[in-house]
Design a protein around this nucleic acid. Structure first.
Lengths: 221, 221
DNA sequence: ACCTGAACACCGTTCAAGT
DNA sequence: ACCTGAACACCGTTCAAGT
């Protein structure tokens, strides 16, 4: 199905841009300026080109983000999975989380429904397989996988938002709420208040994942 | 602390806009055109005013969204909570989810770190209290609340994205991935494939919540 | 085939001026 | 005190034209 023009490479104007060059430049912007600065216009500038030149190599911004995620997932070290199904499930959920934790722009990819990364499918396959090996029916395995996925997405969303607004000063509205919490009619929150904002570590995420998985497995015996 | 000008209402130009009018108009746009159409400019048009007039009544778009959420949470029927702590926790998590499930724009509110809704604080207070009544330490209660919160945020994020892109046709990239999944090297996914895209019902969410909660409580005995 | 320039249809927000 | 208009600094994407 390959067009002869592409194969011979002798017809038409020779390309100055390439998918690879675009992805590399995009990654550089991501690393140096953050996900919120990556726009088609900014990227074109980085490549000393025009926004529309990019559309010859990717379909739209969503595909660009998808390709970045794909490349990242491919380059991610593939761990050896344990034999024991419960541990295998846990390891799968963890590597899924860790891959995405490096990609602050997943939120946007997630927003476009194009989030079906081939390079991460083996993990999903593995998790479903582990769930079935744990004794779940195929339907229950899908359900359980979804619960784990929701937990993962939520953790990542909150994590990225915290990182993004880390050094921004709290708006006045929030201060008003906070003081009303610590002073008054929320005794439990008042006690906990000071400890509330603690950083959420990787350990917390693992422990939560353990709870979610064990809760799911206990439901299906 | 109230300014005399505001009290007498006799100084300066009489107001044509009000917070209430702005919030009502915003809600109308939300209902009729969806969250992605609510912009300061669109809202100004709805009120036959200019974008900048709005900034006299709200600080910025984030505060506007926050106020909308606040109003919604206040108007939401407050259920009677069961006595039993585990059931109380479950009921709290559920009402938290249900309140937010009506607000497709929470995702944006969440993104701004201003998401501290006073009108929903009683729920959080109640959940923390229930967790402590279940025997958790204050620190463990915060951790457990967070896990439930992540699950909730993840469910809502995925839910809204699915709703938003419900009737949009799948992009070619996705089709490529899907066929490679059903055809080839993912036997588990191939079997499950057809059932994968099923709608996620409220029942699914409850069952998942149950698993998460029981998993958390089992961790702390 | 590959790229450019101008344009469309949007954003949130600031600033200086008007009533 | 409340509102307007113009402007700043952006978006993603389409379309017609150039090489």
């Amino acid at each position: 199905m390959q067009s002869p023009d592409r194969r011979s490479g002798k017809v038409g104007r020779p390309p100055r841009l390439s998918r690879d060059a675009i992805l590399t430049a995009a990654q550089r912007i991501l690393d140096e300026e953050g996900a919120e600065r990556l726009s088609m216009r900014r990227l074109a500038k980085e490549l000393s080109s025009t926004p529309m030149a990019l559309y010859h190599h990717v379909q739209d911004k969503d595909e660009l983000l998808m390709l970045l995620l794909e490349a990242h997932a491919r380059s991610f070290p593939r761990p050896r999975f344990p034999e024991q199904p419960r541990e295998r499930l846990f390891a799968g959920a963890q590597v899924l989380h860790d891959i995405l934790a490096d990609c602050p722009w997943v939120v946007e990819v997630l927003a476009s429904d194009k989030f079906v990364s081939l390079s991460a499918m083996w993990i999903v396959e593995n998790m479903i397989d582990a769930l079935i090996a744990c004794g779940l029916s195929p339907d229950d395995a899908v359900y359980a996988y979804r619960v784990i996925w929701y937990y993962t997405v939520g953790e990542l969303t909150v994590r990225f938002n915290r990182e993004r607004t880390r050094d921004a000063k709290a708006p006045p509205y929030r201060q008003r709420v906070m003081s009303s919490v610590t002073e008054s009619d929320f005794p439990r929150l008042a006690v906990i208040g000071p400890r509330w904002v603690e950083l959420t570590s990787v350990d917390h995420h693992r422990r939560g994942l353990e709870a979610v998985i064990d809760g799911l497995l206990a439901q299906n015996v």
